[in-house]
Design a protein around this nucleic acid. Structure first.
Ligand SMILES: NC(=O)c1ccc[n+]([C@@H]2O[C@H](COP(=O)([O-])OP(=O)(O)OC[C@H]3O[C@@H](n4cnc5c(N)ncnc54)[C@H](O)[C@@H]3O)[C@@H](O)[C@H]2O)c1
Ligand SMILES: NC(=O)c1ccc[n+]([C@@H]2O[C@H](COP(=O)([O-])OP(=O)(O)OC[C@H]3O[C@@H](n4cnc5c(N)ncnc54)[C@H](O)[C@@H]3O)[C@@H](O)[C@H]2O)c1
Lengths: 210, 210
DNA sequence: GGCGGCTTGCGAAAGTGTGCACAATCATAC
DNA sequence: GTATGATTGTGCACACTTTCGCAAGCCGCC
C-alpha cells in the first residue's frame, strides 16, 4: 500500500469482493475487468485502476484469477478475520438485524445485544443471544471489547448510545438512526437510512416526469 | 435549475433537509452555513455552494431562514407531494420495513405489499395492508401505478422482482438485496446493504490497529 | 444615518477522481 | 517458434468536486 487510497475506491472494493465470491461459488476460474464491469455497472478501466492501487493481480491476455483476486481483496478489506459486533436497540428493526443470516458468513458476529426496555431485557433472541441491559454496556465493553457497534435505537437516543460506544474505544459504528452522529476523528461511522435514499431518488423522479 | 446538478450534491440535500426540519421543530428561525456544517460534519463552503446551484436563499450577515430553506428544499427534492410505494418480500426485514413509522411523515406511503409464500399471502400487516400474491404484482401495477418499489426478497429472487417492476414502468427502486440490480437507463436504483458498509469500515479498522 | 461585525454567493484555484489509449505481456493455435 | 488475439497496468488529459478568498449586502447599535 504505497500511497493514500481514495475513499471512493475503498467503498467499491466490497462490491467487487461480493461478485467475485459469487463467481467462485459458480465455479468461474478467470474473469476480465470487462466482465466485472458489466456485472457491476462500472467501467473496466475503473476496476483495473482501483485494483492497481494494491498490486498487480491480473494477467495480460487472460484476466484475473477469481480465486487469487478474492483472496487478495479479502486480505485488503480485513475479511480474513472475524469481527465482533454489539447491537444496541432490539425493536422491530433490531430484531430483524439480529436474526439476519447475512452477517455471519461474511465474518461478522453479533456477540451482544442491548436494550433499555425492561420487558425486552432478559428475553432470548434467535439462538443463544440474551438481551442485556444497556446500562451494562459500558462495563461489558470494558471487560470484553468489540470492534463494531450497530445502533438501532430511536433518533433521540442515538447520540447517547454512540457516546457510550466511543467512550469504550469502539472503532466503527453502523447507525440506522436518522441523525448525523458526532464522533471524534478516527472512529468510522456509516449510516443506513432508507428515507435519505428515497429522497435522493424523488429528486430525479420529479425531473423525469416533467 | 439552470445547468446539470452533480449527483453528489443531490445526495447531500436530504441530510440538509432533515436537519432543517429538526431545527424548525425546535423553533430555530435562522441558521448559518457554519452552524449547519458543524451539525453535519461538512464545510460551510460546501453547503453554500450546494444551495447556490438552486438559488439564493440566504441573507448576508444573517444566514438562512429555516422556514424558507426547508420549503425550498422540499420543492427541490420533490417532497411537496406524496409518493406511492410497493414492498416486495415480507420476511423479517420486510415486516420491519412495513411497520416502520418513518416513511409516512416524510411523504412516502406503502400502498401494497407482496410475497410469494402462500402462508404469508392474505395475512394482515400492521393496520390496513393485506399481503398480496407477487403473481398479481404486474397486473396490479398496470391497473394502479406506483412511483417506487422496495425490494426485500432473497438475493436470488431480486433480479426477477426488479424486472417485473421495471416492466411495469416503475421509476425508482430501493433494494435491500445484496446483488447489483440490472436496470435500463432512466430507472433510479439505490441499494441498502449493511454488509457492504461493514466491509468498508473493516478496511480502516485493520489499518488503524496496525 | 453611518459604522462594525457577520455571512452569503460566487469566481477562481486547488485538489481528486475517471476514462482513454497504448505498450507490455500472456495463452493459444498452427 | 511465431503469429494472433486478448487483456492488463498505467501515464496522461480531462472532468469533476471541494475549498479558498473576498466583494457585496444585511443587521443592529449608537
Ligand atoms: N424499522 C425500520 O425499518 C427502520 C428503518 C430505518 C431506520 N430505522 C431506525 O432504526 C431505529 C429503530 O427503529 P425501530 O423501528 O426498530 O424502532 P423501535 O421503537 O421498534 O425499537 C427501538 C428500540 O430501541 C430501544 N431503546 C430505546 N432507547 C434505548 C437506549 N437508550 N438504549 C438501548 N435501547 C434503547 C427501545 O426499547 C426499542 O426496543 C430508529 O432510529 C429508526 O428511525 C428503522
Ligand atoms: N434481515 C435483515 O436485517 C437484512 C439486512 C440487510 C439485507 N437483507 C436482505 O433483505 C432480503 C430479505 O431479508 P429477510 O431477512 O427479510 O429474508 P426472509 O427470508 O426473512 O424474507 C424473504 C421474504 O421474501 C419472500 N420471497 C421470496 N421470493 C419472493 C418473490 N419472488 N417474490 C416475492 N416474495 C418473495 C419470502 O417468502 C420471504 O417472506 C434479503 O435479500 C437479505 O439479504 C436483510
Amino acid at each position: 500500500m504505497p500511497l493514500e487510497i481514495p475513499e471512493v475506491v475503498i467503498d467499491r472494493l466490497p462490491t467487487y469482493y461480493r461478485l467475485l465470491t459469487n463467481l467462485q461459488a459458480r465455479g468461474v476460474a478467470v474473469v476480465s475487468s470487462q466482465e466485472l464491469g458489466e456485472a457491476l455497472n462500472v467501467t473496466p478501466a475503473q476496476i483495473r485502476k482501483d485494483l492497481s492501487y494494491f498490486g498487480r493481480f491480473g494477467k495480460q491476455g487472460r484476466g484475473y484469477s477469481v480465486q487469487r483476486l478474492t483472496d487478495e481483496l479479502r486480505t485488503i478489506l480485513g475479511l480474513d478475520q472475524r469481527w465482533r459486533m454489539v447491537l444496541i436497540g432490539v425493536g422491530r428493526l433490531g430484531t430483524a438485524i439480529a436474526s439476519y443470516r447475512g452477517f455471519e458468513p461474511q465474518g461478522f458476529d453479533i456477540v451482544g445485544v442491548y436494550d433499555v426496555n425492561p420487558e425486552a431485557v432478559g428475553t432470548e433472541l434467535g439462538g443463544e443471544l440474551v438481551v442485556r441491559n444497556v446500562a451494562d454496556l459500558a462495563r461489558d465493553l470494558a471487560d470484553d471489547p468489540v470492534d463494531i457497534g450497530i445502533v438501532a435505537v430511536p433518533a433521540g437516543e442515538a447520540q447517547a448510545v454512540v457516546d457510550v460506544l466511543v467512550a469504550a474505544g469502539i472503532g466503527a459504528i453502523l447507525s440506522y438512526a436518522p441523525t448525523a452522529a458526532q464522533v471524534p476523528a478516527g472512529v468510522e461511522v456509516r449510516q443506513i437510512d432508507p428515507v435519505l435514499s428515497l429522497q435522493g431518488m424523488t429528486y430525479h423522479l420529479r425531473r423525469r416526469d416533467a
